[in-house]
Nucleic acid binder design. Structure first.
Length: 651
RNA sequence: GCCUUUGUAGCUCAGGGGUAGAGCACUUCCUUGGUAAGGAAGAGGUCAGGGGUUCAAAUCCCCUCAAAGGCUCCA
């Protein structure tokens, strides 16, 4: 029948509807409740307005707040509502783009001379909700390019005109709600009435089209919800996340600090932080010995010529810490921004045979990079940091195998430290602009294919990003999120066909001819600084026992038991357990509280009873009293917990 | 580097044109207390730094430095 179409629903059922049926009509045919919650519909894989007529057989999925796409449609529509509110409050405002993001949305606007600040937030929120209550309907209209240009010329919005330049005539649509009309592909929720709660989160500057030569617009970040309660829950989650911020915990737990006198982005590791970091280094050192790495050590500076050879000077020289000059001769040295040139020279220190390969040089190398001041961020982005760096020099036929071994090592480090939620980003060349990369197309293709195959073979959750490759080669990065959901790169593996060429590295093959080795850069942690930052946020400062700066606190009930407490502590130290005795003239309740607050895993309480029996009373952080036991039993218990983690990586 | 915001005691923060306040931490004393804060007293600040306006600036203005949230960048 010509006027009937077949709609396939996600459960596989097929229903017949009149031609021109909308997602909303379908929802209504199922239940009124569903119809009230439908935000949009997926029609043959594309998200459509729920009111848009469907003219032919299709697969349809109805979207609600519970679907990611439903949420992003909701937030995109909210961006239009924000724009409408802004236009009502600040006439003449011009609009850039206003997309939905992972949580919420933003709109880039040009408010002329008005500085959008905290005082404006409430006004705009109220206006948004006022407009939402009138249930303005979102309507879609196709418009010719000429008419669209005329509209925005009349309105004087140069940003929309700029956007229109790149759009194809005949595919341009406008969306309107209330008094606001925007250039938009859609789709949108049925009407603004779905939006019941709105919160402006912050404002930031953002260059038009992300280009720093363009004008800076005001980016207004906001979030909306279909229920007031959900907004409250969201704000609560944000508050909780802030408590895990590594900058806050780092200060509270006395792990690291910064000093203006030392300089921006140059972290100072306090004793407890240094202890934590040292544990991590030792952990990886042991794993690397088993994986066949050879430790090397290189200086913090290197001749400028070294970086001219490597190509880094040409690429980054102007944007780096400037060369250090010696007093009498015309010598120049650079603070090393990376370890690889030094390691290349170690490779060159003697002739290499094909039988020697692969060789793997590992170093916890501290490097210095002049990061832009606005980019510095706690320990995650600093100007001086230590990479758990290593360079593998191998034959071309060994690249893929070595690459996979490194993936194993990274996975094993992440697993031992409890990072289960990470993604792997494969960074390849920009598909169009290839001038910014050094090396031949042939080498790049080989490296890119090797990475993709290895990631696949290891079953990584991979995302491919074009244009994100380093200038010298493609890479595989392991990305982890911080407490606020920001993504950071931790582990990295990079294939490099370029440096061996520039340093003229070679090995003798079985035919007695010279060949060029391939280099793989890799760092499972990435940098100790960033890794510790993410570790703090993921554990909220509750480190596993083997990493905890203080593993235990011995708490005497009163000074009468000082000697017994010291005796116990000595026994623990002999077993390599770390901690302190709380000798302060305080009540036991106070000592317990302070140990809990500083997140010390075990408290050993000793008083009259323990001294008489030769025992300790154990209290575990967050769990409470475990009762008393002989010291030997506690030591066994603690060691068992330590080994539980360490055994994982010994396999 | 750019935009917005912020900078008061070791920490968390209040105040605000008339020469500085709280809680915690710290020191001393009292207390010798059994599983998340015992009591008292004391010490501690060129109110980030510099300049300006003013009879008077921590407070208002300008510059610098640092931090926060973004943008750009990231070997």
């Amino acid at each position: 029948m010509e006027n009937q179409i077949q709609i396939t629903l996600p459960d596989g059922s097929i229903r017949t509807f009149p031609k021109g049926v909308s997602g909303m009509d379908i929802a209504r045919s199922i239940s009124e409740g569903l119809a009230r919650n439908v935000l949009a519909a997926v029609v043959d894989g594309q998200v459509w307005d729920s009111s848009r007529p469907i003219d032919s057989d299709a697969h349809v999925k109805l979207l609600t707040w519970n679907d990611t796409e439903g949420k992003s449609t909701f937030w995109h529509s909210s961006a239009h509502l924000l724009a409408e509110a802004l236009e009502a409050l600040y006439p003449g405002v011009k609009f850039g783009i206003g997309p939905a993001i992972e949580t919420g949305f933003y709109y880039d606007v040009d408010l002329g001379d008005h500085k959008f600040s905290q005082e404006d937030f409430k006004k705009v929120e109220d206006k948004m909700l006022e407009l939402a209550r009138t249930k303005e309907v979102f309507t879609r209209t196709s418009i010719s390019k000429a008419d669209a240009i005329a509209y925005f010329e009349e309105k004087g919005d140069e940003y929309k005109l700029d956007l229109l330049k790149d759009l194809e005539d005949g595919k341009i649509t406008f969306y309107n709600q209330g008094n606001f009309t925007d250039l938009c592909r859609g789709p949108h929720i049925p009407d603004t009435g779905f939006i019941k709660a709105a919160k402006i989160l912050n404002v930031a500057g953002a260059y038009w089209r992300g280009n720093e030569n363009n004008k800076m617009l005001t980016r207004i970040y906001a979030v909306t919800f279909p229920k007031q309660k959900e907004l409250e829950e969201y704000l609560h989650v944000l508050e909780e996340a802030k408590k895990r911020d590594h900058r806050k915990l780092g200060k509270e737990l006395e792990l690291f600090t910064f000093s203006e006198r030392v300089g921006q982005g140059l972290p100072l590791w306090l004793p407890k932080g240094a202890a934590l970091r040292e544990r991590l280094e030792n952990f990886l050192r042991r794993a690397q010995v088993r994986a066949g790495y050879l430790p090397v050590v290189t200086p913090h500076i290197g001749s400028k010529q070294l970086y001219v050879t490597s190509g880094h000077y040409e690429k980054y020289g102007k944007d780096s810490f400037q060369p250090i000059h010696t007093p009498d001769e015309d010598e120049e040295f650079l603070l090393k921004p990376m370890n690889c040139p030094h390691h290349c020279e170690i490779y060159r220190s003697k002739p290499r045979s094909y039988r020697d390969l692969p060789v793997r040089f590992a170093e916890f190398g501290t490097v210095y990079r002049y990061e832009q001041s606005g980019e510095l961020h706690g320990l995650t982005r600093v100007r001086g940091f230590t990479q758990d760096d290593a360079h593998i020099f191998c034959r071309p036929d060994q690249v893929e195998e070595e690459f996979m071994k490194v993936i194993d090592l990274v996975q094993y480090v992440f697993k031992a430290l409890g990072f289960s939620e990470y993604s792997a980003q494969v960074s390849l060349r920009d598909q169009e602009d290839r001038a910014k990369y050094i090396g031949t197309d042939e080498n790049w293709d080989r490296a890119e294919q090797a990475i993709i195959r290895s990631a696949e073979a290891k079953g990584l959750n991979t995302v491919i990003e074009y244009g994100e490759a380093a200038f010298y080669g493609p890479k595989l990065d392991f990305m982890v999120k911080d407490a606020l959901g920001r993504k950071w790169q931790l582990g990295t593996i990079q294939v490099d066909y370029n440096l061996p060429e520039r340093f003229d590295l070679e090995y003798t093959g079985s035919d007695n001819k010279k060949y060029r080795p391939v280099m793989i850069h890799r760092a499972p942690f990435g940098s100790l600084e960033r890794f510790v930052a993410i570790l703090i946020e993921s554990t909220a400062g509750n480190f596993p026992l083997w990493l905890s700066p203080d593993q235990l606190a011995v708490l005497p009930i009163s000074e009468k038991y000082t000697d017994y407490a010291n005796e116990i502590f000595l026994l623990l130290q002999e077993e390599d357990l770390r901690g302190y005795v709380d000798h302060r003239d305080e009540k036991i309740g106070k000592k317990i509280r302070d140990a809990e607050v500083s997140k010390t895993p075990f408290m050993l309480i000793v008083g009259e009873k323990e001294q008489a029996e030769g025992t300790v009373s154990i209290r575990k952080k967050g769990e409470g009293d475990l009762g008393s036991m002989p010291i030997g039993q506690f030591i066994a218990l603690a060691k068992e917990e330590i080994n539980k983690n360490l055994l994982k990586f010994q396999k």
